[in-house]
């Protein structure tokens, strides 16, 4: 086989497309990048174990801020609220988003263009605008602000994330698969459950993960659509931080990081399980 680099003479070796990470300059860049991204997180986690009131010097290891956090009813309630909203929003957004993504990929219907553009609005328009408009809407139809309105808003802006991922996945499925299933005698519903859904699964799981994380850390929209007694974790942390950054907040954040990491790990394992079966033919 002839490659371009075979013409080169001397030291410079042929580099495979994926082997660039072996170069030391690139290694350095990657390392600095990762450091920049994760150092603040590492500091935060480390100082949650710091036996000091201020986050400046290391005074020894302790679990006491975790105890304190667990006993802080406000923070715990906020955490529960956040998880509840995120789980509900993920559940509904995944179902609706899957349906939307599949419809946009598979069917041509009158008004598809506008629906397509409309469906992606929540990703594109600034969150503040969305927050304000949702607030105005809830005021207009006289729904009291609270966990319900937060959840409804989260479902709304999570749907497009799921839809985009599912749509991309659906585009990779050979339409002949479904036809083969009808041809073998299956009804449309049977075909959906036994042929389409299993092949969509990796996309659905990825979409759900995305929805979950987006919902869990949303601040702006939650801020607009929440009311008294419906404080979520990011908002609670923000209000606490206005006074001072306490190790308590560090501890609570660390717990959240661990929690989301577990959820994402489970999701990724599921994703790998469902997609390994049909890695490209």
């Amino acid at each position: 086989m002839r490659t371009f680099s075979s013409k080169r003479i001397g030291k410079s070796k042929v580099i495979e497309p994926l082997a660039y990470t072996k170069r030391s300059v690139i290694k350095l860049v990657i390392f600095v990048n990762l450091l920049f991204l994760y150092l603040p997180l590492l500091v935060l986690i480390a100082f949650s174990f710091n036996d000091s009131k201020r986050n400046i010097v290391w005074r020894g290891f302790t679990f006491k801020y975790y105890e304190k956090t667990l006993k802080n009813d406000q923070l715990m309630e906020a955490l529960t609220n956040s998880l509840q909203v995120a789980l509900l929003a993920t559940f509904f957004a995944t179902i609706l988003g899957t349906m939307l993504g599949l419809a946009l990929q598979r069917f041509r219907f009158p008004g598809k263009g506008p629906v397509d553009a409309w469906a992606h609005m929540p990703i594109m328009i600034p969150e503040v605008c969305m927050g304000v408009s949702l607030l105005a809407f809830f005021a207009l139809v006289k729904i009291p602000l609270g966990l319900f309105t937060i959840t409804a808003s989260h479902i709304a802006f999570c749907i497009p994330f799921v839809a985009i991922v599912v749509r991309a996945r659906a585009a990779t499925i050979d339409p002949a698969m479904e036809e083969a299933s009808y041809d073998l005698g299956a009804s449309r519903i049977m075909t959906f459950w036994r042929i389409t859904l299993p092949q969509l699964a990796p996309g659905i799981i990825a979409g759900a993960l995305l929805a979950f994380t987006v919902s869990l850390d949303d601040f702006v929209i939650t801020f607009f659509t929440g009311g008294p007694g419906s404080t979520t974790f990011p908002i609670q942390v923000y209000s606490m931080i206005k006074f001072s950054v306490t190790p308590e907040i560090n501890a609570a954040s660390t717990m959240l990081i661990v929690l989301t990491s577990i959820v994402i790990a489970v999701g990724l394992v599921l994703h790998a399980k469902t997609s390994e079966k049909d890695s490209e033919l």
């Binding site: 050979d174 002949a176 299933s181 041809d183 073998l184 042929i195 092949q199 079966k277 049909d278």
Partner: peptide, 13 residues
């Protein structure tokens, strides 16, 4: 009737 598709359409999962 049954059909054998050009892409075979063997279910990957």
């Amino acid at each position: 009737v049954n059909m054998v598709f050009q892409s075979y359409a063997v279910f990957p999962h």
